[in-house]
Simulated scan of single mutants.
Amino acid sequence: MRTRVKICGLTRLQDVAAAVEAGADAVGFVFYEPSPRSVSVDAAARLVRSVAPFVVTTGLFVNPSRQFVEEVLASVPLDLLQFHGDETPEFCNSFPARWMKAIRVREQGEIEQAFERFSSASGLLVDAWVADKYGGTGQSFNWELIPDERPLPLILAGGLASDTVATAVKQVRPWGVDVSGGVEISKGIKSADKMIDFISEVHRVDETD
């Protein structure tokens, strides 16, 4: 199985182009104002329209209002919604778009519970738990908490970079990996070289195993 790669937190046209050129399967745009990687609806529309075919465009939300999600969907041609807060399955299911749910992992059993609770999602993203922060922390968590039984595609996030992602892919065998800070020069500003190195490491593991 080939491990998919999502580059998240893109804010510039040149970074979107570099991510796609490096081989990203998906690109992510943050619609959460407290994040340093947040983009406006108008900016996101320009960024998403620049994405080449066959690359999945993803919008990340944290506890949004229904009105805001609908506003984004009306202006930005997203392929997938990513809910990264405390949203309910009913809320996530109420939009005319595919979605995945992100959870912050602290304890044994939380991932299994999330698989059951969010069974209608397209996938489950697992990230590190940090108080009052919904992702983008650059921290990893105990991968031993990830079960072998996975009813949905599992996407691994949290503290990944080119020097850690090979170990992560070998140990966890996720459907995909999601990176933001690990390929940045500064928050929201990506490095083309880091994105190339990150994706190359993922492909190297896939090819050798």
Results as ranks from 00 to 15, higher is better:
residue 155 I to K: 03
residue 10 L to S: 04
residue 154 L to D: 12
residue 95 F to P: 05
residue 145 L to T: 07
residue 101 K to D: 06
residue 111 I to W: 08
residue 7 I to F: 09
residue 84 H to Y: 01
residue 22 A to H: 09
residue 80 L to A: 01
residue 179 V to P: 11
residue 71 E to K: 11
residue 4 R to K: 15
residue 162 S to E: 15
residue 3 T to I: 04
residue 189 I to W: 15
residue 114 A to F: 12
residue 82 Q to H: 10
residue 63 N to P: 04
residue 183 V to F: 01
residue 58 T to Y: 00
residue 73 L to M: 14
residue 68 F to V: 02
residue 175 W to C: 00
residue 141 F to D: 11
residue 45 A to R: 11
residue 167 T to K: 15
residue 145 L to G: 07
residue 95 F to I: 06
residue 5 V to T: 12
residue 38 S to P: 01
residue 162 S to G: 13
residue 68 F to E: 14
residue 166 A to E: 15
residue 102 A to N: 10
residue 186 S to A: 10
residue 199 I to S: 03
residue 114 A to D: 12
residue 130 V to K: 10
residue 173 R to W: 10
residue 100 M to D: 00
residue 153 P to K: 05
residue 169 V to F: 13
residue 59 G to I: 01
residue 161 A to I: 05
residue 104 R to N: 10
residue 192 A to H: 03
residue 104 R to G: 12
residue 191 S to V: 02
residue 203 H to Q: 09
residue 22 A to S: 14
residue 44 A to K: 02
residue 156 L to P: 00
residue 127 D to C: 11
residue 190 K to W: 09
residue 201 E to Y: 05
residue 154 L to K: 01
residue 167 T to P: 00
residue 20 V to Q: 03
residue 52 A to S: 14
residue 75 S to M: 09
residue 207 E to N: 15
residue 185 I to S: 14
residue 3 T to V: 05
residue 176 G to I: 03
residue 131 A to T: 08
residue 189 I to N: 04
residue 25 D to Y: 07
residue 69 V to L: 06
residue 156 L to S: 00
residue 151 P to S: 12
residue 70 E to A: 04
residue 151 P to V: 03
residue 39 V to S: 04
residue 119 S to D: 00
residue 7 I to K: 08
residue 61 F to H: 07
residue 102 A to I: 04
residue 105 V to H: 13
residue 153 P to I: 07
residue 100 M to C: 11
residue 196 I to M: 05
residue 131 A to F: 03
residue 22 A to P: 02
residue 170 K to S: 12
residue 158 G to W: 07
residue 51 V to A: 01
residue 199 I to A: 12
residue 37 R to S: 09
residue 154 L to A: 06
residue 32 Y to K: 02
residue 155 I to F: 13
residue 3 T to Y: 02
residue 99 W to I: 02
residue 99 W to Q: 00
residue 49 R to Q: 13
residue 159 G to K: 06
residue 92 C to W: 08
residue 127 D to A: 13
residue 128 A to Y: 15
residue 33 E to P: 13
residue 115 F to T: 02
residue 63 N to Y: 09
residue 62 V to W: 00
residue 174 P to G: 06
residue 79 D to Q: 10
residue 100 M to I: 10
residue 198 F to C: 01
residue 78 L to K: 00
residue 47 L to I: 09
residue 30 V to L: 03
residue 43 A to T: 12
residue 36 P to W: 09
residue 31 F to A: 02
residue 45 A to G: 02
residue 48 V to M: 04
residue 85 G to H: 02
residue 98 R to W: 05
residue 208 T to A: 14
residue 109 G to N: 05
residue 173 R to A: 13
residue 35 S to I: 01
residue 33 E to Y: 06
residue 122 S to Q: 04
residue 154 L to N: 00
residue 143 W to I: 09
residue 42 D to F: 03
residue 159 G to P: 14
residue 44 A to D: 06
residue 109 G to P: 09
residue 182 G to I: 03
residue 5 V to A: 08
residue 28 G to T: 01
residue 143 W to D: 08
residue 126 V to N: 01
residue 198 F to M: 07
residue 133 K to C: 07
residue 14 Q to G: 03
residue 97 A to L: 15
residue 113 Q to N: 11
residue 11 T to C: 13
residue 2 R to Q: 12
residue 119 S to N: 07
residue 100 M to H: 09
residue 34 P to K: 14
residue 144 E to A: 13
residue 59 G to P: 02
residue 176 G to H: 08
